[in-house]
């Protein structure tokens, strides 16, 4: 009986020592959780989640906020966040389908050069100065919609991104078939 206790005790000590040593010696530095979450978020900085940017939302998620608040991220982002945070997907509400990507467009004939939209853009995707023409850099625009509201002359509209052959998603159903009369 005593021998058994001694044996088990000794085993526990030995394995505990090994594990402790391994925990220190082979420790892997992992990204802080907030950074990992921020990497998953789409960086639109649109504020639709209620936080002023993606980083604050990442911090909120790390603090326990729900992960379904990001519409631009869509389902893919929610899935990845669920994987990362260990949250079960079934318990979440179904969010709306990911909308097509849109970018802002300024109708230049209506622009009055007030710079209100420039101040609103979180990624500085609008080029212009006071009393000068404003224009959107389509490549930098994240489609966050924040510039549409401040424009006093309503000259900004959101346009869907054109599909090109390189970015085609191989959706065979969407190819328009041309019906011709047989010659």
């Amino acid at each position: 009986m005593i021998t058994a206790l001694w044996a088990l005790g000794a085993l526990a000590l030995v394995f505990g020592a090994i594990l402790g040593y391994a925990a220190i010696r082979f420790k892997v530095e992992a990204d802080p959780l907030v950074d990992q979450i921020d990497d998953i978020l789409p960086q639109t900085q649109c504020g639709q989640c209620g936080y002023p940017g993606c980083r604050p939302y990442a911090e909120a998620i790390a603090g326990g906020d729900i992960i379904t608040k990001c519409p631009p991220g869509g389902e893919a982002t929610i899935k990845k966040l669920a994987d990362l945070m260990g949250v079960s997907l079934d318990s979440l509400d179904q969010t709306q389908n990911k909308q097509e990507k849109r970018v802002a467009y300024i109708r230049e004939e209506d622009c009055i050069g007030c710079t209100k939209c420039i101040q609103a853009c979180p990624v500085d995707a609008i080029v212009g100065a006071s009393k000068q023409m404003h224009t959107i850099l389509s490549n930098e625009c994240t489609g966050c919609d924040l510039c549409v509201e401040p424009c006093p002359v309503n000259c900004i509209e959101m346009r869907p991104v054109q599909t090109t052959a390189e970015r085609w998603k191989w959706d065979l159903q969407s190819i328009p078939v041309h019906v011709v009369e047989v010659k």
């Binding site: 789409p42 960086q43 639109t44 940017g53 979180p122 990624v123 500085d124 995707a125 930098e140 994240t142």
Partner: peptide, 18 residues
């Protein structure tokens, strides 16, 4: 996905710069 990740990186950089 890779293109969007790249764009997100760029948007993040621009946001930080702003």
């Amino acid at each position: 996905t890779q293109r969007e990740a790249l764009k997100a990186e760029q948007a993040k950089a621009r946001f930080e710069a702003r």
